[in-house]
C-alpha cells in the first residue's frame, strides 16, 4: 500500500490474499536467501519487512503486532512496520519492501524500498 509499481521493475509478485494473513499477525515469504515478513494490522493495512530484527536478527514475523509496530520476540525491540526503524531508545533499521493491495490480492515487490 505504500508504493506505486515502477514500470522498470518486474519484481511485483502475487503472494496471496489479505485473508491469508492473520489480523495483527504475519506470514513469511521466502525470496531466495531472504525471508520477508508480511504483516496485517488491525485495520487491514499490509506491510512487509525483512524478517530480521536490526538488534539480534530475531524473526519479526513471530512478534506481537500493535499500532503500526511489531515487537520482536527475542528482546522486545519495537520496529515500525512502515519505516522499519526501531522505536524508542533503540537504534537500527530493518529493510522494508513495497506492498500493493488490489482488491484482496497482495502483491509484494522483492526489491527493498528506499
Amino acid at each position: 500500500m505504500n508504493a506505486v509499481p515502477t514500470p522498470a521493475k518486474f519484481d511485483w509478485r502475487l503472494i496471496g490474499t489479505v485473508d491469508d494473513i492473520p489480523i495483527q499477525g504475519a506470514r513469511c515469504v521466502e525470496a531466495g536467501d531472504t525471508r520477508i515478513a508480511v504483516f496485517r494490522t488491525a485495520t487491514d493495512e499490509i506491510f512487509a519487512l525483512e524478517d530480521r530484527c536490526p538488534h539480534k536478527k530475531g524473526p519479526l514475523s513471530q512478534g506481537i503486532v500493535h499500532d503500526g509496530c511489531v515487537t520482536c520476540p527475542l528482546h522486545n525491540w519495537v520496529i515500525s512496520l512502515s519505516s522499519g526503524t526501531a522505536q524508542g531508545a533503540d537504534e537500527g533499521r530493518t529493510a522494508t519492501f513495497p506492498v500493493r493491495v488490489t482488491g484482496r490480492d497482495v502483491y509484494l515487490n522483492l526489491t527493498p524500498g528506499a
Binding site: 503472494i15 491469508d20 515469504v29 525470496a31 531466495g32 508480511v38 522483492l110
Partner: peptide
C-alpha cells in the same frame, strides 16, 4: 508454512 516461496 510460508505464504509464498520464490527460488533464487
Amino acid at each position: 508454512n510460508p505464504l509464498a516461496v520464490f527460488g533464487r
